[in-house]
């Protein structure tokens, strides 16, 4: 009797000890894991943090150490950087970027949706060959088409205008987006579209009222990618834009490096911070739609 109760007690203490040990190990492993994640994350983000910090430093302080906290914070970099060394303020360059991005993003969304809808839902002659060529374009390096494109746009008289930068994309020229939307459409059930046809909607009405709302998340991704890629595009404007008054921000940043003999790094960094801000804001604002909803398509019974 006593033996049994003793054995029970010791078993319980053993259990408790094991549980306590497990809890301790769990705590330690959590601490280690989070410390590691935090450390690596910080390391990755450091250049960005440094960029923001350095944009508030004076020019002489920037190279005096690797720390990111400015000793005497100043907005001088922003004020002077905004003025630029040209007759225009940086606002002008932002406006130029906007004039390229707006028609490009809208045009891409509309044209790619229509092309993808046609490829995903209709049968027409040479469909396989045409879709094959879309994929081929996807695999083609951009560099290959630069020169023929340049000559084409020169003959059209489009040089030194925004047209070469957005017209091709607004006519579904970006095979990647077409491909992405086709894949997304193929995964959507066709029942709703058939119901719409029975309800009397024609193809265009079906596309606008039924398909586009279901495509929402994919379209948000398309617009987001197009926005960020255009914002960051340097080569395109460099090739086609020659007047300073038409420069988008990506070129304008380079401008401040070119024209001053002693680089005013604080101005450059301040303007860099401003340049990445729209992309960051848009990304975080759209992130919810970007991630959510892909599963919100069809309703299962």
């Amino acid at each position: 009797m006593t033996d049994i109760s003793l054995a029970k007690t010791s078993a319980r203490t053993l259990d408790e000890a094991a549980a306590a040990k497990r809890a301790r190990m769990h705590l330690i492993s959590s601490v280690v894991r989070y410390a590691l994640l935090f450390g690596v994350g910080f390391l990755m983000l450091y250049p960005l943090i440094w960029l923001v910090g350095a944009s508030f430093k004076t020019n002489s302080e920037i190279f005096s150490g690797a720390g990111f906290l400015p000793q005497s914070p100043t907005v001088e970099g922003y004020v002077q950087g905004w003025q630029t060394s040209t007759p225009y303020t940086f606002g002008r360059f932002f406006w130029n970027s906007f004039l390229i991005i707006l028609p490009k993003v809208i045009g891409t969304a509309i044209s790619c949706t229509m092309v993808a809808y046609a490829f995903a839902r209709f049968e027409f002659p040479f469909k396989k060959i045409l879709f094959g060529s879309v994929i081929a374009v996807l695999l083609l390096p951009n560099v290959v088409t630069r020169i023929p494109q340049y000559i084409l746009f020169r003959d059209l008289g489009w040089l030194d205008s925004f047209l070469p930068l957005w017209v091709p994309s607004a006519l579904a020229g970006d095979a990647f987006f077409v491909f992405m939307l086709v894949q997304f459409l193929r995964s959507l059930p066709t029942d709703m579209e058939e119901a719409a046809r029975v309800d009397g909607a024609n193809s265009l009405q079906t596309l606008v009222f039924i398909v586009v709302p279901m495509l929402g998340p994919a379209l948000v991704s398309v617009c987001l990618f197009q926005f960020m890629w255009t914002m960051n595009d340097f080569l395109g404007p460099l090739i086609y834009i020659s007047s300073v008054d038409k420069y988008p921000v990506s070129l304008a940043l380079k401008l401040s490096i070119d024209t001053t003999e002693a680089f005013e790094w604080n101005r450059i960094l301040a303007m860099s911070v401003l340049t990445i801000t729209p992309a960051l804001v848009v990304f975080f604002a759209a992130q919810r739609y970007f991630i959510e909803g892909i599963s919100a398509g069809g309703r299962k019974g």
């Binding site: 059930p189 029942d191 058939e194 709302p213 279901m214 019974g301």
Partner: peptide, 9 residues
């Protein structure tokens, strides 16, 4: 339709 095919939005 079998899956009702209601317009989800």
């Amino acid at each position: 339709f079998q899956n009702y095919a209601l317009y989800p939005h």
